[in-house]
Design a protein around this nucleic acid. Structure first.
Length: 208
DNA sequence: AACAGCCACAACCGCCTTAGT
DNA sequence: GACTAAGGCGGTTGTGGCTGT
C-alpha cells in the first residue's frame, strides 16, 4: 500500500459499463458528497435495510453498493493500511486454518475488512506463500507454509465453532473477548466529519 | 522524457444463504 | 414447505500511479 494519493483513491474507478445503458444506477468511485449522504442516512436509519438506505439517501446507488462502501470505508473503528507484522502473521495463520474465508478472518482482526485482507493477501502474502512453497527447504519459521492447498480444502470444511476452538490454541497472544467485541463505536460521527473535512485524506492513508 | 509493464486496491458481479411472507 | 427479496461473501475486473528501461 501507500502508493495511492488521496486524489487517486477518490477518483480511482471510472463507472463501469458506461454507455451500455443497462442500468441507470450510479456506479464507480464514490464521491465525498455521496459518502456524506450515505453516512447521514445511516446515522438516521441504521446500517441495515440497505435497499431502504440506498433509496432514502437519495443516492442513485444499489443497496449492495451502499453496504460495501459503508462496511469497507465509512464505518467507525476502521483501520486503513499499515498492516502490522502481528496482523500479517495472524492473517497467515488464520488463512491456514480457514482458507479464503475472508469475512471470518476479518472478524478476528478488529478494524480490518474482508476486502482489505483479501486484497492484501492477493497482492502480498499469496506470493510469499507461493514462493516459500516452491522452496520448502528454506522455510524455518512457518509450518504454515507449504500446506496452503490443504488449508483451503480444510478451511472450506470447517464450521465456525471448530475454527474458533482451533484459533484458541494458536500461540498468538490476543484477547478473545476483545476479538469478538464489535460493539464499541465512537460516539457520533465526528470522526467521519473530520475525515471528510480533511479533504478526505485519512492520516493512515496519507502516511502510506 | 516517453513508454510499457506491474502493482495496489476500490468496486462490481454472481452465487449462496437467510429472513420474511 | 415454497417462493421471493435482501443480505453476505468470495472472486474478479478495471483503473491510476509507480517503477524500470
Amino acid at each position: 500500500m501507500g502508493k495511492k494519493t488521496a486524489k487517486s483513491i477518490f477518483n480511482l474507478m471510472a463507472p463501469r459499463n458506461e454507455g451500455k445503458g443497462k442500468r441507470a444506477m450510479n456506479r464507480g468511485a464514490w464521491t465525498p458528497d455521496e459518502d456524506r449522504k450515505l453516512a447521514q442516512c445511516i446515522q438516521t436509519h441504521g446500517a441495515k435495510r440497505w435497499k431502504a438506505v440506498a433509496l432514502k439517501s437519495g443516492l442513485n446507488r444499489c443497496g449492495k453498493s451502499c453496504r460495501l462502501r459503508w462496511l469497507n470505508y465509512l464505518r467507525p473503528n476502521i483501520k486503513r493500511g499499515n498492516i502490522s507484522d502481528e496482523e500479517k502473521d495472524l492473517i497467515l495463520r488464520l488463512h491456514k486454518l480457514l482458507g479464503n474465508r475472508w469475512s471470518l478472518i476479518a472478524g478476528r482482526l478488529p478494524g480490518r475488512t474482508d476486502n482489505e485482507i483479501k486484497n492484501y493477501w492477493n497482492s502480498h502474502l499469496c506470493k510469499k506463500v507461493n514462493q516459500k512453497d516452491e522452496k520448502p527447504e528454506t522455510s524455518t519459521t512457518q509450518e504454515t507454509v507449504g500446506q496452503n492447498q490443504n488449508a483451503v480444502d480444510r478451511g472450506a470444511m470447517l464450521e465456525k465453532e471448530v475454527a474458533v476452538n482451533e484459533i484458541d490454541n494458536l500461540d498468538v497472544n490476543f484477547d478473545v473477548d476483545e476479538f469478538f467485541n464489535f460493539s464499541e463505536e465512537p460516539s457520533g460521527f465526528d470522526w467521519l466529519n473530520k475525515y471528510l473535512e480533511l479533504e478526505h485524506i485519512p492520516e493512515t492513508t496519507k502516511s502510506l
